[in-house]
Design a protein around this nucleic acid. Structure first.
Length: 538
RNA sequence: GCGGGCGUAGCUCAGUGGUAGAGCAUCUGCCUUCCAAGCAGAUGGUCGCGCGUUCGAAUCGCGUCGCCCGCUCCA
């Protein structure tokens, strides 16, 4: 059973060290999250995969890493100073808040004209540069990494002798002062972008836009995000960003929060390179740019065929790393039944469930439509509790469910049975898994078994470079499940047979390798482990 | 930002004015143990934070921070 609520993912992330709320010891900071020991591995693996697939496996791409702080004029001419700046007004009567440019003198909600003066709200974070804090000494934290690429267009062109079409890729942090960060990694104030600016001949932009759409869809599929969970949103003209002629948003169907953007693929035309150029009138620009009196450069490309300088068009595939991590986790998440719970124990959950539903039916704290949805869901669950036990959590995650006091009791009844009869497993692609291999001793107080297991672990990590961990803090079944939960593809167990002390003398010098997805085991000679795993982990 | 709900041990929760609890997890021993429940012991919380009411506050009031839901906002 795949993830049905974001809470399941959030809980796993916190519990196992993928992602923590930022600054938690001081009560947290809204819209900031920290990646833990496993999270950083997963995130780095994703970024590396993106880089490999977009930079190394193509012939038309270079990479850069630009600074986060840039001259303020970058943001003046990119249009962000103007467009990332929304004047807001509050209605004193009904307490609603609106964008001043979206309403006329009257609150659309209650019709009141008792509005506050418009107050500017800038999405860009400001910081002071240098020791003197006067009005001219500030810079913005970049709201997108893209401008670092545009600003370096001529540098890259001059140092690499690239011909159109070619692209520049970059991964880095960006910052937006979101009014209301929400939904875990989905909307945060500090995030990482994986961006490509792909420069093409004007006129070929539409073809390249389509090609990139296909290329990006293929990448998402290659990291385990099923095609049928992604939809393409052709952004209507009135919703386009100020720099875009056309944009395809790739939308992923997240649990709890529904269909949301995971990547934007925009046709930015000649807007950015043109905006940052001097002598704009002579460049034959098609985009409407602001007059630039500060730039010292023409960001143009000399086309040898037509013998003229031109401003390339730009296709920009831009994905958020956090949203990507989240989507990959949601896709990989699974709860599987290992063995059937006894009728007696199921009955205790069934009783708690029916008490919960009775209480929900009488509750006046929740809205009728929420109550009806809860009861409908609960009843269908009650009819097939044996097969659908994990959905108790789903039920309790529904809007309004936490208003019902008996919910905690229901969870308390279901939890121990779930722990024992189900496993949580992340079916991550092996190359994305934070840990590739775990090594266990079958018995943790047998000196020789422990020593052999530790030796195997050391050797594998040192010689093959794959992330390998050792664990002996529990019975073997518990160790397997612990690794399942973080998506470790292979577990190696050293047992008595390995030492030649078991019932199968022929197995001396071999260990069992257990597959995460099938739970099947295979005996492999210790000396062949490295080759065996290299093959499997590819 | 508004409205509603929530915040007690790493996790799930009990505790409604009188000395902070349980189960699981973790750690240390013991056990020939391949798919989470063996045995014994131990660690761990100024009850989100602050102020107030009270002889006394996890419990009551106010404020604040964070999270969740719905609006709003936002790519």
């Amino acid at each position: 059973m795949p993830a049905v609520s974001l809470d399941q993912i959030i809980s796993l992330c916190k519990r196992r060290g993928f992602i923590f709320p930022g600054s938690e010891i001081y009560g947290g900071l809204q819209g900031a999250y920290d990646f833990g020991p496993l999270g950083v591995e997963l995130k780095n693996n994703l970024i590396n995969d993106w880089w490999r697939s977009n930079v190394y496996e193509r012939d038309d791409m270079e990479g850069i890493d630009a600074s986060i702080l840039m001259n303020r004029l970058v943001w003046k001419y990119s249009g962000h100073e103007e467009t990332f700046n929304d004047p807001l007004v509050d209605c004193r009567n009904c307490k609603s808040r609106w964008r001043a440019d979206h309403i006329k003198d009257k609150c659309p909600n209650c019709g009141s004209t008792d509005l506050t003066e418009p107050r500017p709200f800038n999405m860009m974070f400001k910081t002071q540069v240098g020791p003197v804090a006067d009005s001219g000494s500030f810079a913005y934290l970049r709201p997108e990494t893209a401008q670092g690429i545009f600003a370096n267009f001529s540098n890259v062109l001059a140092t690499t002798s690239r011909k159109l079409p070619f692209g520049i890729a970059q991964v880095g942090k960006a910052f937006r002062n979101e009014i209301n960060p929400r939904n875990f990694l989905f909307r945060v104030r500090e995030f990482e972008q994986m961006e490509i600016e792909f420069f093409v001949m004007p006129g070929s932009d539409e073809t390249w836009h389509e090609r990139w759409l296909e290329a990006r869809l293929a990448w998402w599929e290659s990291i385990g995000v099923r095609r049928e969970r992604i939809s393409i949103y052709d952004v209507p003209a009135d919703e386009l960003a100020h720099y875009s002629k056309r944009t395809y948003d790739l939308m992923y169907d997240y649990p709890s929060i529904g269909v949301q953007e995971i990547e934007g693929i925009a046709n930015r035309t000649d807007y950015d390179l043109g905006s940052h150029s001097k002598d704009q009138a002579s460049l034959g620009l098609t985009a409407r740019v602001n007059l630039n009196e500060d730039s010292t450069a023409r960001l143009t490309y000399f086309d040898h065929e037509s013998k003229r300088h031109l401003v390339p068009y730009v296709i920009e595939p831009s994905a958020g790393v956090g949203r990507c991590v989240l989507a990959v986790l949601c896709e990989a998440y699974d709860e599987e039944q290992i063995k059937a719970p006894s009728a007696e124990r199921l009955q205790s959950v069934a009783d708690a469930l029916s008490a919960f539903l009775k209480s929900a039916g009488k509750s006046e704290k929740i809205r009728p439509e929420q109550r009806d949805a809860l009861i409908a869901q609960g009843q269908s669950l009650a009819d097939a509790l044996a097969e659908r036990l994990p959905e108790v959590e789903t039920l309790l995650a529904m809007p309004g469910a936490d208003e019902i006091e008996l919910g905690k009791k229901l969870r308390g009844q279901a939890q121990p049975i779930l722990d024992e009869h189900y496993r949580t497993v992340l079916h991550l692609r092996p190359r994305l898994a934070p840990v590739k291999v775990a090594v266990f001793p079958l018995k943790r107080n047998h000196e020789q078994i422990v020593a052999t297991a530790k030796q195997i672990r050391r050797q594998l990590q040192a010689e093959s470079g794959v992330r390998t961990v050792y664990d002996d803090s529990g019975a073997i079944g518990k160790l397997y499940r612990r690794q399942d939960e973080i998506g470790t593809p292979y577990c190696i167990t050293v047992d008595f047979d390995t030492l030649g002390e078991g019932k199968a003398p022929g197995h001396a010098g071999t260990v069992t390798v257990r597959d995460r997805d099938t739970m099947a085991q295979e005996r492999v000679p210790i000396g062949e482990l490295q080759t065996y795993l290299r093959e499997k982990l590819r």
